[in-house]
């Protein structure tokens, strides 16, 4: 029973991926043919073309990597003050709010102030807007790091004569590495998946994979839309495979109350 349901679930996931793959190579696929009449790899060769899908993919990759590095770094440094704050519950509620709100509302709200600050319509503005969501997520995740167990490790290091810097680099960072890796991946994906903030803050001048996908669907080019979708699926699948082993719970010790 378990094996059958696993096969069914894998099929349910792989069948849409297979259909996207077929569409990305379909040159002519008229109704009601079960398969394309003509096949071409032009959607994929377009990847190398200047200003094509490849540029959008590289732009998405650059924004997402920047957002992930900054959010994880800043989240790591500031998560301790959230974990130890007296008004921790209120801070946690505030951190969860951007996720409960539709990113559209956040984007619409930021749009005008970003326009005034000269941040609308460029990569920096898009990365900054996505960074707000990613930073909130990083703090939520990394505040689970500051348990009594980690505190005891740091105190032990100080007792043995370690400077604060040594305690951070030689004790805390190795302890935090799995959680930091998870945080990096998740914040990367927040940016990678985002469409609303790119649309609103980018104002049509910043093309990423998600905005390209939408434009291809709107223009009826399902071949390029499918190729964009497959590219969008690639990093999260790689992340799932690479993160299949370590579990942050082991480090965090206590669940987030």
């Amino acid at each position: 029973m378990r094996r059958v349901s696993n096969i069914a679930l894998w099929t349910a996931f792989l069948a849409p991926v297979a259909l996207l793959l077929v569409w990305s190579f379909a040159w002519r696929w008229p109704w009601p043919a079960p398969l394309p009449n003509r096949w071409r790899a032009s959607a994929w060769t377009d990847l190398a073309a200047t200003g094509g899908l490849g540029a959008a993919a590289l732009r998405s990759l650059g924004i997402a990597t920047t957002v992930a590095v900054v959010a994880t770094g800043l989240g790591f440094v500031t998560s301790r003050s959230v974990a130890e704050a007296r008004a921790r519950e209120a801070l946690q509620w505030l951190l969860h709010l951007p996720f409960a709100l539709s990113p559209v509302v956040l984007g619409v709200g930021l749009e005008y102030s970003f326009l005034r600050a000269g941040l609308a319509g460029n990569l920096v503005g898009v990365a900054l807007a996505q960074g707000i969501l990613a930073y909130a997520y990083a703090v939520i995740l990394l505040s689970g790091l500051w348990t009594a167990r980690v505190g005891a490790f740091l105190e032990g290091a100080a007792t043995l004569g370690a400077t604060p810097r040594q305690a951070w680099t030689l004790v805390l960072l190795p302890l935090a590495r799995p959680l930091l890796a998870l945080c990096f991946v998740q914040t990367f994906l927040i940016s990678w998946f985002d469409y609303a903030l790119v649309l609103l803050i980018g104002g049509g001048r910043v093309a990423t994979l998600t905005t390209s996908l939408y434009q291809f669907v709107q223009s009826g080019d399902l071949r390029l839309a499918a190729a964009s979708a497959l590219l969008l699926l690639l990093p999260p699948l790689v992340a799932l495979v690479t993160q299949a082993q370590p579990r942050p719970d082991a480090l965090a010790g206590e669940p987030d109350p």
Partner: peptide
């Protein structure tokens, strides 16, 4: 409980891709 299970696969699907599918 592993992260790479059929249950975890939708995590890898952006809403845009789900809509297109």
């Amino acid at each position: 409980r592993s992260m790479l299970t059929p249950w975890s696969l939708p995590i890898a699907v952006p809403p845009m891709v789900a809509g297109l599918s």
